[in-house]
């Protein structure tokens, strides 16, 4: 399977995937879906609320996996999946794009669809160090999102906070692992974040949107690339509450 990141491989390394019914919550471009299929998952539900991402996942891993891959466009707070139907849930880089108000509902929904004793892997970024230059781009992205949507685009949750939110829904931490230290924010990643800013800028009057987009472009070129912060992986097991 092409392009399964090391972060995904490392996060799944000690999880039972072969023969399991899996859910990638927030499929993005399907990195974890690709990893789960490569590791022998019986079925993978790739759930995303983004039609472009859904199409990308189908295109990327759909060939030859028609009997194992189900791409679903749905809100993660209320998926069409049956209660107690999934062995392994993954949320790779998902939580940082969930506003705090949605996080609890997503944790509850993932607990609903998981089988008793089911497993969950949550991979995300620790709060970046305050001296990280990338923070300036992330702050701009959040400011633009607040103006347009009234909510932040990015929220970095400390590991203890995520563990506590999921614990409220029966998820018990089995272990924690550091996936990346430092996190390499490459030019490509920064460009992707600048694209998000440009997306918001397009929805604003030119007088605000154009300078916003220009600031994003300036930040990307000023930062270039940066190594900062860490990415962690939390492995949970669902217990009765």
């Amino acid at each position: 399977m092409d392009g399964v990141p090391e972060t995904v491989t490392a996060a799944l390394a000690d999880r039972q995937v072969e023969g399991q019914v899996c859910l990638e919550a927030g499929a993005g471009v399907g990195n974890t879906t690709a990893g789960l299929l490569a590791a022998g998952a019986k079925r993978v539900y790739a759930v995303t609320n983004d039609a472009d991402h859904a199409a990308t996942v189908r295109e990327r891993v759909g060939d030859g996996n028609a009997d194992r891959l189900v791409v679903i466009e749905a809100d993660l707070r209320a998926t069409p999946l049956g209660t107690g139907s999934v062995d392994l849930v993954t949320a790779h880089g998902l939580c940082n794009v969930l506003p705090p108000a949605d996080l609890d509902a997503v944790a509850a929904e993932l607990a609903r669809v998981a089988k008793p004793g089911g497993r969950l892997v949550v991979d995300d970024y620790a709060v970046p160090p305050t001296d990280g230059a990338v923070n300036r781009l992330f702050a701009l992205e959040n400011a633009a999102a607040r103006v347009v949507d009234g909510r932040p685009a990015l929220t970095f949750y400390p590991v203890a906070v995520l563990a506590a939110v999921f614990a409220d829904h029966g998820w018990t931490v089995e272990h924690r692992k550091t996936l990346l230290d430092p996190v390499p924010w490459t030019e490509a990643h920064l460009d992707a974040h600048a694209d998000v800013v440009r997306g918001y800028a397009d929805e604003l009057p030119d007088v605000i949107g154009e300078p916003l987009a220009a600031i994003a472009a300036d930040l990307v070129s000023a930062i270039g690339s940066e190594r900062t912060g860490t990415m962690y992986s939390l492995a949970f097991r669902l217990v009765d509450v």
Binding site: R60, G93, D181, P184, A188
Partner: peptide, 25 residues
């Protein structure tokens, strides 16, 4: 350590990625 090894691989991987770019690693 392994987290740093992965960081170097991830950094290099994005130099020549066959996969559409996204926000995270």
């Amino acid at each position: 350590d392994e987290a740093r090894q992965r960081a170097l691989i991830e950094e290099a991987r994005h130099d020549d990625s066959p996969v559409p770019e996204q926000l995270h690693h």
